[in-house]
Write a protein that binds this DNA or RNA. Structure first.
Lengths: 109, 109
DNA sequence: GTATATTATCGTAATTAAACGATAAAGCAT
DNA sequence: ATGCTTTATCGTTTAATTACGATAATATAC
């Protein structure tokens, strides 16, 4: 049955935000970093670089991406930067996820 | 405190799978398509193209990406193709999400 | 058979992402 | 002050993404 749908606006802020959060998770290294941050209480860039098979500059780039997505905060502590999960961002992530879970019930035509 | 972590293997299948699913959601058009598929019972490429501000070939590409990620199935019905949410893929997505929700409790150093 | 409708694929262009090494900046130690 | 450590940024290269129009393929209609 033709349930006619209104046109979709790809610039809808909520839609864009959801995609941005998902995109930030769209690389194994970034998921790994988030999990590390959830486990450890120290979270300097160097600690992460030690554990990931990536160059320091690459890790720094991934951290920047996570920060831009609002999933992570970075507080300068002297010469180092302490990265942490951003509670607000994680909350948004969880909301996105549960919203999607609700909407994507299993149907098939 | 230095909770020393084992090295992370970015080729870990589960990690890669999680990232691949997230990546598939990492574009507004693809999230919109998934939501449409959840709402409508007809789900031909043309129906989606009608609603999205994108060319037919672009929509087809996004559908291909969703299919490659296992989130969508496409059954050929004569000259058209009927796209549906893939229950297995959606289940995986939900598992990923709840796993992440569990792991990413709010901490800060 | 000829035309029409539907979708996938090809070719292409522009943009973004991912990775690295090298370097700069800035704090800490001596 | 000099050197060491830590991290961000720059410059670069390679690869992937996104988008479009054009075309091919295939089923349906006439």
């Amino acid at each position: 049955m033709e349930t006619l749908n209104p046109p979709v606006h790809l610039n809808d802020p909520e839609l864009k935000r959801s995609a941005a959060i998902a995109k930030a998770l769209g690389h194994p290294a970034r998921i790994a970093i988030l999990k590390l941050l959830a486990q450890r209480d120290t979270c300097f860039c160097g600690d992460i670089t030690e554990v990931l098979p990536l160059a320091q500059s690459t890790v720094s780039q991934h951290l920047k991406a996570l920060k831009a997505a609002g999933l992570v905060t970075g507080e300068v502590e002297g010469v180092r930067t302490c990265y942490c999960l951003n509670p607000d961002g994680v909350k948004e992530l969880k909301n996105l996820l549960s919203e999607l879970s609700d909407e994507l019930f299993d149907t098939c035509c």
